[in-house]
Computed example of a mutant assay.
Amino acid sequence: MNKIIEIMKQHRSIRSYLDKDISDEVIDNLIEVAQSAPTSINGQHPTVIVVKDREKKEEVAELAGGQPWISQAPVFLLFVGDFYKAKLAADKVDKELVITDSVEASLVAAVDIGLAMQNVITAAESLGLGIVPIGGIRRSPEEIIELFNLPEYTYPMVGLVIGHPADRSKQKPRMPKDAFRHDEEYNKDKLPVLIDQYDETMSTYLKEIGREEEKNWTSYLMNFYQQVYFPKVYPTMKKQGFKNER
């Protein structure tokens, strides 16, 4: 197995960072690998905002629900779903931008950003850096949009913290591979037993790291999924031009 595959298999989220900068050269390289990721119809929908200013990171940390590692780490990347560039293309040839009326635009932006961010994650971890994705920026999207001066047809999708790990957190167990891999068709019959097995594994893991109050995967997941936990996403997407109507 090659080194990169082994690094990817060892991934873990890091929430404690050293007070140590990352060079501009490394940041530039991380941005370049993000931009090198594939995008749907070469639309190049991801845009990345590099944030190093301490005060701005502290504001993001608060808006994301109180996540101190955002301000602690030297670099925060904001991944923006960007159809503003497409709007400029539409205006240039005197055509109407229609795709943002559709759910497809939101899916395209999310998929393309996922591909770009994974490139950054792999590259950063190959350099010995630690990362943690931040979905919490969608908790207060209006404030994030204002803070970063985002124009219409753009939306803050996810953030990424990057820094030098203060410690290597314990790797979180994944579901059995049989729950992840299905051959030729989706096999739902095997899942209940596999989920039961995973709940037992997670219960042990959570006790080991002092978070036994979360109980297991099922209980933790449904603490979130019994509600729309970021209710401001839909109205702010519409306000930004992503109607999601068809």
Rank of each mutant, 00 (worst) to 15 (best):
K243N: 02
H45M: 04
E142P: 00
Y205R: 10
Y186L: 15
L147Y: 08
F79E: 09
S102C: 04
G136Y: 10
M157T: 03
P133S: 13
R138C: 08
Y234E: 04
L194Y: 13
G159V: 02
V93N: 08
G114M: 05
E55N: 11
D91R: 15
Q118M: 05
Y220D: 09
Q226T: 14
Q227K: 15
L88D: 07
D167C: 04
V93W: 09
S71Y: 03
I121N: 07
Y17E: 07
R54M: 03
G43F: 07
E143K: 15
Q171Y: 06
K207H: 11
A179K: 15
P173S: 09
I145P: 06
T47D: 04
G81N: 04
I49N: 03
Y234A: 05
V228R: 15
Q10A: 14
I145N: 06
E200D: 15
F79H: 10
Q118P: 01
P176C: 09
V233N: 10
V80L: 09
M175V: 04
E184L: 12
N244P: 00
N216C: 10
E104R: 11
L129K: 11
K207M: 10
N119P: 06
T154C: 13
A86K: 04
F148T: 03
D199W: 10
E152F: 05
N223P: 01
F230C: 01
Q44L: 01
I209H: 13
V51R: 03
K207S: 13
L191K: 15
D183M: 14
K85Q: 12
Q118N: 06
M157Q: 08
R138P: 07
I14Y: 13
D91S: 13
H182L: 06
H164I: 06
E59I: 07
I70V: 11
H11F: 15
T122A: 05
F180H: 07
S23V: 05
E142V: 00
E146A: 11
E185H: 14
K52E: 08
K57H: 01
D53M: 08
K215V: 09
K57Y: 00
Y17F: 15
R54H: 04
S36G: 11
I195V: 13
E213I: 00
F76M: 07
T201G: 10
L221G: 08
P173G: 02
V80H: 12
L150N: 02
K57C: 05
N187L: 12
S16A: 14
R168Q: 13
V108N: 02
I5M: 14
E6C: 08
I113H: 04
A124V: 05
S169H: 14
I144A: 08
P38Y: 04
